[in-house]
């Protein structure tokens, strides 16, 4: 099954299970079914609860917040994640605040979906990864779609949290297969330190015996695993990849054993400690990134145990050009990761 189909099924599932659920967005109605076809079939099956809107990102996100305020469930599709900037106020100053600023908890069952990232030559205003701008907002969770996480579970977890979430979906993933990990690697799922979806893990034989630990969101899985394969074949370097579904709040107990709060978490600290290098990889451009937050958390908890500081791999701090040859020079690719691992392991 392709990731797009899995996500589409998740949306069908939400609308089916919850008669107070809405899906809202621009050009999402059949037969068009959304710019990336993720909402295909929804409006035919659930007319009245799947709403094709004017081009009004701020307006429709506020509308979703209004539905959520009344106890309904609202999922907004922002056609290109770049345009979530237009809805920033509604998300940050209204939806996230409303959970707590009235002195009592106001649950908000609300998800803002953002097709994200480059690699398709759409140019500077249609290719960004804006996750970093939503990191550190109290009352707001940031999730990222992954080929290793069932979107149904992720969608349910975001809604069940009762807090608004922004869900970033790397556009390039849509056409990839679910759970596809290149030979000779395998994957499994370890529980997170919170009640949400677990942390997916891709490894060779023993996940705790890797030379290098890589932490990356779902959009990077393809590129990271290809780099891992090349590093194994070319240099016999073993890497273990951890893919959290929820990026923020980032729960360091997912990855370290300090405090050993989470079930199974005790197995992760040793992996980090044993690794000769730890890298955080993301597509967002350099500066003020999610990766900095992750690196900081790990440093704070494990500074003395690490052989070297966590290395960060980002796209170049730049606009994302339209032309393919320029775009690939800016974005994190398989070779960027490959080189960064070699660099981090160099003694």
């Amino acid at each position: 099954m392709r990731v797009a189909e899995n996500l589409n099924a998740a949306l069908h599932g939400v609308l089916e299970a919850d008669p107070a659920a809405y899906v809202i967005g621009e050009d999402i109605l059949d037969p068009y079914g959304g710019a990336f076809k993720i909402t295909k079939g929804l409006s035919s099956r659930f007319p009245g609860r799947v709403l094709g809107t004017p081009i009004s990102e701020a307006g429709i996100t506020g509308l979703a917040a209004g539905l959520a305020l009344c106890g309904d469930t609202a999922i907004v599709e922002i056609m290109f994640g770049d345009f979530v900037a237009l809805a920033f106020d509604q998300i940050v100053n209204f939806a996230a605040k409303s959970c707590s600023m009235y002195g009592t908890r106001v649950p908000m069952r609300m998800v803002v979906r953002c097709p994200t990232g480059g690699g398709r030559g759409y140019g500077p205003t249609h290719s960004q990864s804006l996750q970093k701008h939503f990191i550190g907002v109290p009352g707001l969770s940031v999730y990222e779609m992954s080929p290793l996480h069932d979107n149904r579970a992720v969608m349910n977890a975001m809604l069940a949290s009762g807090e608004p979430s922004v869900f970033f979906e790397d556009k390039v993933l849509y056409t990839r297969r679910m759970y596809d990990v290149p030979d000779p690697f395998r994957s499994d799922m370890i529980p997170a330190g919170h009640t949400g979806p677990g942390v997916a893990r891709v490894f060779l034989d023993d996940p705790e015996e890797a030379d290098c630990v890589i932490i990356a969101p779902g959009g990077m899985v393809d590129r990271v695993t290809r780099a891992m394969r090349a590093l194994l074949l070319d240099h016999e370097i073993t890497c273990c990849l951890y893919v959290p579904s929820r990026l923020y709040p980032f729960d360091p107990f997912d990855l370290t054993d300090s405090g050993a709060r989470a079930v199974g978490a005790g197995r992760l600290g040793p992996a980090l400690r044993r690794a000769r290098a730890v890298l955080v990889v993301e597509e967002g451009t350099a500066g003020g990134t999610w990766g900095s937050e992750v690196a900081h958390q790990i440093h704070r908890l494990m500074w003395r145990d690490l052989r070297r500081p966590v290395a960060q791999v980002n796209s170049v701090g730049s606009v994302i050009p339209a032309a393919a040859h320029l775009e690939s020079a800016v974005l994190v690719g398989e070779s960027t990761i490959y080189d960064a691992v070699l660099e981090a392991l160099r003694d």
């Binding site: 205003t125 339209a322 032309a323």
Partner: peptide, 28 residues
């Protein structure tokens, strides 16, 4: 096409062009 002689060096592409007193952008 991202070729030599591009108005904006191929950075902007179809939707983002700036020349003299002319500018386009892809955000509605």
């Amino acid at each position: 096409m991202g070729r030599e002689g591009a108005v904006c060096r191929g950075v902007g592409g179809s939707q983002h062009v700036y020349r003299d007193r002319y500018m386009s952008t892809g955000v509605q």
